[in-house]
Write a protein that binds this DNA or RNA. Structure first.
Lengths: 236, 236
DNA sequence: TCAAAAGTGTTTGCTATACACCCATGA
DNA sequence: TCATGGGTGTATAGCAAACACTTTTGA
């Protein structure tokens, strides 16, 4: 038991981890196996330990629940509306990141009954998220319910992620693509995140004119019955 | 006494309130009259009450210590490094705002032994803050000490404030100038915050071309032995 | 008449955008 | 040979930046 003179809100850290999956922007959620919102999907996260830096708490919870570590995170902000946690006043500090889906070894554990990527289009969010001008017809997944105010947090994280990519002036801190990538791959990531199509020639011209990317050797990849694409890497 | 199964960090809310004062960017600080950092200067702020929304806590503390209320605030983020408060692990959620100095009726009270505006150039900050290309020669105030990690928070707030004004595309949420203002006044505010000079003709042309401001009647003000300036108001 | 700040246009270069066809490859 | 995605250049418009002199007023 820990005693204090004044009541204290609990403090948690949550992580919104985005990835690109099957041409959709997806976020990693865990299905809650415990008391509040049992059965609902929630962001990975949990209580901040005593004398634990906030970002470390977020990274720890992320690692415990998803196996992901070492990814750069950005703080999104604090969310502390009373009522967001039925157990009592809880302030959460949210972080967000973008990772390659392959780098995640999701594993259920602790309070998590299940871990899975969820396309944003399948989530009940306020933001009208329409990832492609030409959405590939696909059977829509059934709507799911999100725990706490995690819908609001995911919405805010999406907004910030878009801000970060709004000008492709400099490379993102996040790993949007593997170390070697085709420009078409990179463009697809931008398009899905920003929710609009980009002009292929303008996109390539900008990246090359500013020297952001450089051809990665004479290497090319063969992926279908069409011309193989040049591979690029980030410049410095 | 309040008891919890697990230790909890304390949660506070702090406010970085900027203003324009004597052609300098200034921030409002209170001199601490109580235990940790007694005698040092600190941001107005304090503990978040149970079931109190974070922004309301920030507004309440601001009102209690400065008499300012009803100003729009923006959340800067959460700061929770262990060691930032010698009393124990404390997470603070920082907000920032910009107000007209006249609107503040500063009054010492509670834990505050004194309340005063401090020019940023007199504070020990990391950011090389040089508000004017032509700094008016002025006797430098003696250096002061800041409590907690408030130097870091003020630095971050300055960065965000600058981001908000970086493109004068739309009017700020904050009250940078009185309801009626001259374009020179407005330009001076931008210059001081951004820390660089702006071209008078370009500045005016942009504001007018986009219809952000409009002349406030035929009114003019006479302030010296020179031509009086046209007054403007924000458009909508 | 002078000091002080107000006010006013044009040019130039960059950046964003729009736009359509040929190329290389494997099936 | 054909379907598929890879790859390329140019023209235009809008915006940002640089730049200097005249006007109005009160002392």
């Amino acid at each position: 038991m820990f005693k204090y003179k004044f009541p204290r809100p609990a403090v948690t850290a949550d992580v919104v981890m985005f990835t690109m999956r099957a041409d959709d922007l997806a976020v990693l959620l865990i299905r809650r196996g415990a008391d509040p919102f049992e059965g609902s999907w929630a962001l990975p996260g949990g209580f901040v330990d005593e004398n634990e830096p906030l970002e470390r708490a977020a990274a720890r919870e992320l690692e415990e629940e998803t196996g992901v570590s070492g990814v750069p995170m950005e703080q999104l902000g604090a969310f502390g509306n009373p009522g967001r946690d039925p157990r009592g006043h809880t302030v959460t500090v949210a972080y967000f990141t973008f990772v390659l889906a392959e780098s995640v070894r999701a594993r259920a554990g602790d309070d998590a009954a299940d871990v899975a990527w969820h396309p944003l289009r399948s989530l009940p969010l306020r933001s009208s998220f329409s990832p492609r001008a030409k959405p590939r017809t696909r059977s829509k997944p059934p709507p799911i319910t999100l725990a706490f105010d995690h819908d609001v947090i995911i919405d805010a994280a999406l907004g910030r992620l878009r801000e970060r990519l709004d000008d492709p002036l400099r490379p993102s801190r996040f790993q949007l693509v593997p170390p070697r990538f085709t420009l078409a791959e990179l463009q697809r990531v931008y398009e899905v995140i920003l929710g609009r199509t980009l002009d292929k020639r303008n996109f390539r011209a900008r990246l090359l004119a500013r020297g952001l990317v450089e051809p990665a050797g004479a290497t090319a990849r063969k992926t279908g019955r069409h011309r193989p694409a040049q591979l690029y890497r980030w410049n410095r």
